[in-house]
Nucleic acid binder design. Structure first.
Lengths: 183, 183
DNA sequence: GCATTTCGATACTATCTAGTGTCGAAATAC
DNA sequence: GTATTTCGACACTAGATAGTATCGAAATGC
């Protein structure tokens, strides 16, 4: 713990992380250069390397920062069908309101080369998955079926957003619930 | 049309395309160097540039080649539930038996930078989608619901294979059909 | 035989970029 | 005031690689 000297500028850290997310979303992981990130953040490369070990660590931190900001709401309305719809809608909103979708898309390919990115990427899914799994459980019956349901629901969203490059409307959450769990 | 001079060696073309698919699967799109591809194919860079405009075109051609080899079977058994299962099983088999899965994963991120890759990638999905859509139609009811079903079924597979890096068993096809279209 | 186009091999150029080093200035603790 | 660590700015190194040029040899049509 360093207590002597000029303290780290938290604002510089935040602007670095948001700039990282923006540039990675715009260029893709590999084409995102530290020079461009630093220019956009009004910062400098030494400022990066005082905080992170390298580019993968920086991008991983940017993802964690975006997730922490996203605050996943945990519904508990008693109406399971409604809870599922809320989680799905939040997921759609996260992809719509932040550059996270494109970042995730470009990182799916880069995760094999950079273990730190794989960890950060898994974190994106794990959080949503746990929420959705809990909400789906009472509707699904057994655990295996619940896992399958989560993959179908989340899979449909990821498929449309990441693979087909669509921007689903909020109503898509309701359509998914109606399709999978008809009354 | 060139009729004079030494003809193109089709074997060289094929070994180039398969080597491209292998290396891209192993390294990822950006880390796949033409030098490594050429070394594995026992070929040379001029041989590439006599055929393709550049790296994106080469990779796009490699995907088209893999798809053409894959021969998608069109089921027509009269039993719609069975037809859907067959298409899903073929899709799983394609991902299991060729390096295509990893290639698709790494290309999802690269498609935004290279339009040629986006076209090739869309082609991968379009073919499967048409098949699955036709099979699902009688079970889904209206067209909109059929589109949704395709996204859920295909989404679940892509989600597990590409995002969660699982290697689903063949039985997964049956589980999906049972979940979405219970008797 | 001759022109032409291919082949694989090799070398080269041009460019890009992650990461490091150094700087003067500013912000902290003591 | 002094020591320390930060800041952004700038320059630089080292490595990788897409793409081009050139080569002698081989395979075609005429």
């Amino acid at each position: 713990m360093r207590v002597v000297g000029r303290p780290r500028d938290d604002a510089a850290t935040v602007s670095l992380l948001t700039a990282t997310l923006t540039v990675v979303a715009k260029r893709g992981y590999h084409e995102a250069s530290l020079d461009e990130i630093v220019a956009r953040a009004g910062s400098s490369k030494p400022t990066i390397y005082r905080r992170y070990r390298g580019k993968p660590a920086l991008v991983a931190a940017a993802i964690r920062h975006a997730l922490a900001t996203a605050n996943p709401r945990v519904p508990e309305s008693g109406d399971a069908r409604r809870d599922v719809r809320v989680v799905l809608r939040n997921t759609l909103a996260m992809f719509a309101s932040s550059p996270l979708a494109r970042v995730v898309a470009t990182l799916i390919g880069a995760a094999d080369e950079e273990p730190e990115l794989a960890v950060a990427l898994a974190h994106v899914e794990r959080e949503r998955r746990a929420l959705l799994l809990a909400a789906v459980r009472p509707l699904s019956g057994d655990d295996a079926r619940a896992e399958l349901d989560v993959d179908m629901l989340l899979g449909a969203i990821y498929f449309r957003v990441l693979f087909r490059r669509m921007t689903p409307k909020k109503a898509f959450a309701g359509e998914l619930v109606a399709a999978r769990f008809p009354r």
